[in-house]
């Protein structure tokens, strides 16, 4: 089921969601520590979080492809 095209599509989406949630969670912890709360920093960290999520997801799926996991 997970190996089907739909299964892989869902797994890809879950990878993206997980990395986005992970990075945004770290962003919230940094906010809780009192850093990066001004608008400029908040906007910048939003872009960093999205870029990380996309980059990490692509990296995982490229490595998965190279190691025969896909």
């Amino acid at each position: 089921m997970l190996g089907s095209p739909i299964g892989k599509f869902v797994l890809f989406g879950m990878t993206l969601s997980l990395f986005y949630h992970l990075a945004n969670g770290i962003r919230h912890v940094v906010w809780d520590l009192g850093h990066g709360l001004d608008i400029k920093s908040a906007n910048a960290s939003a872009v960093v979080v999205m870029a990380f999520a996309i980059a990490a997801t692509i990296a995982v799926w490229v490595i998965a492809g190279m190691t025969g996991a896909v």
Binding site: L18, G25, I26, A64, A69
Partner: peptide, 16 residues
């Protein structure tokens, strides 16, 4: 944070 990173790594290994 570390558990999920390990989980992704583990899933990749198991899928192969």
């Amino acid at each position: 944070v570390p558990l999920c990173l390990w989980g992704v790594f583990a899933a990749m290994r198991l899928a192969a």
